[in-house]
């Protein structure tokens, strides 16, 4: 059935745009906006109304992106993750995406719950949570650059970049 990989690719793109789009929103827009909003006493608008909604779509888009990507790899899933059978380039993209998914669910979301008051935390725990969530988010921005390179050029355009 050719419909499954075709639909998986479509879903992978849509969910991936939502995931990475929100990641870039957090890092390129919200971090600086929150600093300015804290200074003029309007931070609650972001932390109460914007951030929880953005995080909801962010973390679930990450899951959908990964699942659609795994479906897209299909029978080549193991070859990609073991970097074999000519799948090393897309495999590196898949590994980077997987590490980023881990960062979302194991580091960013649990710490954001403390920061936003969804989970009770002391001021000291909140300060630590802010730093961990910030660095995990920034690490994901850094990883997204090679991840998108290998996603874009690692399989369908591998002839251009890797001469195969």
């Amino acid at each position: 059935m050719d419909y499954v990989p075709a639909l998986a690719r479509w879903l992978h793109f849509m969910a991936g745009i939502m995931w990475i789009g929100l990641l870039y929103y957090f890092n390129f827009v919200q971090v600086a906006a929150l600093k300015a909003a804290t200074a003029d006493g309007t931070a609650a608008g972001i932390t109460k109304h914007v951030a929880p909604r953005a995080l909801l779509f962010f973390r679930w888009a990450a899951v959908v992106t990964w699942l659609a990507g795994a479906t897209l790899l299909g029978g080549q899933f193991v070859n990609a993750f073991t970097l074999q059978g000519g799948m090393a380039a897309i495999g590196v993209g898949a590994w980077l995406g997987t590490i980023m998914l881990f960062n979302v669910w194991a580091l960013i979301w649990p710490n954001q719950k403390k920061i936003l008051g969804i989970k009770p935390a002391t001021d000291e725990e909140k300060t630590k949570a802010r730093r961990v969530a910030f660095l995990a988010s920034r690490a994901n921005v850094m990883l997204s650059i090679p991840m998108l390179f290998f996603m874009a050029g690692g399989l369908s355009h591998r002839g251009v970049f890797f001469g195969m």
Partner: peptide, 30 residues
């Protein structure tokens, strides 16, 4: 030393350097 991830430019440049490193590593494998 300052953490490059503390600035957006540091983050983007780190990502580009990582891309180059991984590109040549994968080129060796393929």
């Amino acid at each position: 030393m300052k953490n490059p991830l503390d600035s957006l430019w540091g983050t983007v440049i780190s990502g580009l350097i990582l891309t180059l490193i991984l590109y040549f590593a994968v080129k060796c494998i393929l």
